[in-house]
Design a protein around this nucleic acid. Structure first.
Lengths: 269, 269
DNA sequence: AAGTGGTCTAGACCACTTT
DNA sequence: AAGTGGTCTAGACCACTTC
């Protein structure tokens, strides 16, 4: 279970699946040895504990000193592992308090995946209306993107979001049926707070990353009606795939954004 | 010139503009002391050297050991400063060789600020055609975003980019006239390579960050003609402000993207 | 062989939070 | 006072590149 370091201060080493950094070392039966630094191995172990739910979103994880003792490495090595996890937003460090598992139940998390911002001077009172929730069989394209088999059960959700009473977003979601068993319109409507918070608390699925493809499209009659605009109005289309631990896709989302009073903010570094 | 650390291993300290971390320390005449960690001060000093051109894009900067000696701090502190600069893409580390100043003359830099990607299976042969270059007085909105006074000289550029012979992007740029004195259509046309490479080499202006606002709009007649599409075709509008060192805005760009065979890729973390 | 960045350790002290 | 993360140092060795 331990990474088993064989470093200078560590004597002899306690055998086991030793990690040698020597190129010519006898790596029995490994075609591609895949060496990795100790701190990366520690990072992977911590990630596993996050994924397994040993430490749940919002909870405190063990202190650096404690983790260093557990893994038999120095505090500096644990620190570097946690530094990367913090950079990836998997955990949050707070001086004097400890390191917490990230959660979507937080003010700062609400806008993490929503890049649509009100233009200057436009107020921001969000509202969500569920239009439809139903179970269906995954079409080929949805199945492919969610890593399912064509025809597997998926849950389909359609909703409209308004800002300051102006309908601005119409969204369609596809979720793997097996993961979100029991998700109904009632539960979505009743739930207060962000949808990713519900996924996290009620279904144990924590979204940690997403990838979007943006396009400009014309509003079809359905979207136009929901957004109360003329058919043909240009809309910003965002096709999002969201991932949980291990880069496993667990949500497909197609949003159509009305961008007359809002814009999609993108920072390039 | 030195940060003058007064840390345990350093004896007595060599006087000067000492940086104390003691809250009650006598900070003469400083209303808001603005303490900062040593490595942040080192980072700022390195950034100054980058900005002043002491080390130019593509060049090697002094080694960690050398910088540690120069600043009279440990290598670990220099390392942490450079780590952050590398994370911000200001420098690039290469094991065994050294640390290099980032440059826009590189394959990997070409797509740093261009998020428009060909859809799957669509080939990618870029081509650029300059439509217009002229000097003008900055309109109020351009002046505001470029931190200039209304009426200051700016250079206006209009160009069309094609991918695999399909016109896909029409762009308008505004650049501060003082910074880009002598920029002409000829130089833009003659120059091989990315435009930011030209700005870097010929005008000493290195873009390090940009911020875009995206919207869906209808093609006006001018854009429609250049992109060879029907007026009213939905286009993705990207309004970009680019910054150089010190968060100084040095470019304003409005791009209109045809997204029938391309998409704007956005990664959410 | 020498020089560079990359990893790892050990120990000190600081800043912040809670008890 | 005790515990947490944050900073800083010093020294060792490793991996990679060049001479």
């Amino acid at each position: 279970m331990n990474p088993v370091p064989s470093n200078p201060p560590n004597p002899a080493a306690t055998a086991g699946e030793a990690v040698s950094a020597t190129p010519g070392a006898p790596v029995v039966g490994a075609a591609a040895p895949t060496f990795s630094p100790l701190y990366q191995q520690i990072k992977a172990l911590i990630t596993q504990s996050l994924q397994s739910g040993e430490w749940k979103p919002g909870e405190l994880i063990p202190s650096e000193v404690e983790l260093a003792n557990r893994f038999k490495v120095s505090q500096g090595t644990v620190r570097k592992a946690i530094d990367e996890l913090a950079a990836e937003n998997l955990v949050m460090r707070r001086q004097g308090k400890g390191t917490f598992v990230s959660t979507h139940h937080e003010a700062r998390a609400h806008f993490r995946f929503l890049r649509l911002m009100p233009d200057e001077g436009v107020p921001h009172y969000p509202e969500s209306k569920i239009i439809e929730v139903r179970r269906m069989r995954a079409p080929a394209d949805v199945a492919r993107l969610l890593d399912l088999k064509s025809g597997d059960a998926v849950i389909f959700v359609k909703r409209v979001q308004s800002f300051s009473l102006v309908p601005t977003i119409v969204e369609e979601l596809w979720l793997p049926g097996s993961t979100f068993k029991g998700l109904t319109a009632e539960r979505l409507v009743e739930y207060k707070g962000p949808m990713y918070g519900l996924f996290e608390s009620e279904f144990g699925t924590h979204m940690i990353r997403a990838s979007e493809k943006l396009r400009a499209v014309c509003a079809d009659s359905a979207a136009a009606e929901l957004l109360k605009v003329a058919p043909g109005t240009p809309l910003l289309s965002a096709e999002r795939t969201s991932f949980t631990y291990g880069d496993k896709p667990v949500e497909l989302r197609r949003g159509l954004y009305l961008t007359s009073d809002h814009h999609y903010q993108s920072e390039l570094n």
